[in-house]
Design a protein around this nucleic acid. Structure first.
Lengths: 213, 213
DNA sequence: ATAATACGGTAACGTACCTTACCATTATAA
DNA sequence: TTATAATGGTAAGGTACGTTACCGTATTAT
């Protein structure tokens, strides 16, 4: 009996915590850290402030929980990096599509806004977000590029810089506009076009070549 | 006498307005829109709240004035686009250095943070910032690329996309880290390296070429 | 069934802050 | 010099919000 009650109790507790976190993230993402109020969270999820303060200790910790836990989930979508192909172009295309999908997802965009806004006041959160998201991606791509470099398929001075540049191309102004709410995130078709162009420039460059390899 | 008094009075008024704007921008950039208080501005610049409300009508308008006026100034540094060279590489390098200098300047970074943070709540400001800054840059670069394309010096499908990608490379993860306060802005030497690599990849690509043009 | 315990809701405390009404002080014109 | 207008400072109104104290309720073990 005890076990059952315990597990049910814990399950509910977990579930409730999750509900609060979800509602809170919506409020924080919409209003910003300072603009968000505990009352608004309660209005969304029901219950009382007392609950929030028992699950999370303070507004600050609630925000921290949102950023760290949502960052971890966003990371997950980028983690299963098989990338086992042998063709540079195919690997880059696949990787690019995945990056773009993650980066342009509403949750990631909201997280990005929040972290940029509060990064200077919550440096630990900025680090968590960066290491889980963009950092992880560029580290992984750097490794991949190193491999191709050793195999002689690409020529590049600094693989890390190159990796960051490839990802930077993908982000580009489109990400900026989307972040600022000036444009909707691209759909799958558009994302594919973006990736294709990026891969092409990244591999072949723009300069006119008389003798193609 | 009247003229003198008038001009002095107006000059002071302009000067005072500028002082308030300066102090206010520091406060807003440090604390964020919601976190900034008129009292904090007064503590920095002296005088009384009454003054702020007579120069600007409200907190919102004060913020709007900061974003629009500082955006305009940031633009100025990117405006004198001679770019008259005939060598693609030289033109891109020059352009890249200027972009990077502007983009990584403390003021631009602070503006960027503020606009990303509040963009969804102040869409007009996001538009002003974008059109004065990043938008202007990519429009200008697009024109330049079109020229080189017609001259046959570069091959590229979509010049606008290419332009955005070049600028995206320059921004890259470094801009992200700097924006979030995880890293200091690059110095001139580092910026030059960044530009150099970006130009190289943008023009030549990374793929190994057996027959160089 | 009853005592003990944890959980959740209400209400209040204290603070911070935008905004404005009111007053003093200074500048301007006759 | 004196009347008038405008500018700048003080203080208060009104609201919003993070946090916690207090109390009722439900849950658990004897």
């Amino acid at each position: 009996m005890k076990d059952v009650y315990m597990s049910v109790s814990l399950g509910n507790r977990e579930k409730r915590r999750e509900e609060i976190l979800q509602a809170a993230s919506e409020v924080f993402f919409e209003a910003g850290y300072k603009g968000a109020s505990i009352d608004a969270v309660i209005e969304k999820v029901g219950g009382s402030k007392r609950a929030i303060y028992s699950y999370f200790g303070s507004k600050k910790e609630l925000f921290a929980a949102i950023v760290t836990e949502l960052s971890n989930r966003a990371l997950a979508a980028l983690e299963p990096d098989e990338l086992g192909g042998h063709d540079v172009q195919a690997v880059l295309t696949d990787f690019g599509q995945r990056v773009l999908e993650v980066v342009m997802s509403p949750t990631t965009l909201a997280l990005y806004r929040a972290v940029v806004a509060e990064g200077t006041r919550f440096p630990e959160l900025a680090e968590v977000f960066f290491n889980n998201g963009p950092g992880r991606a560029s580290v992984r791509l750097t490794e991949v590029l190193e491999q191709f470099k050793h195999k002689g398929q690409i020529e590049v001075q600094d693989c890390q810089l190159a990796a960051e540049y490839f990802i930077g191309m993908l982000r580009s102004d489109r990400h900026l506009r989307t972040t600022m709410g000036l444009q909707e995130p691209p759909g799958e078709m558009e994302r594919n076009q973006m990736v294709q162009q990026a891969v092409k420039i990244f591999l072949d460059g723009c300069k006119t070549h008389r003798n193609k390899a």
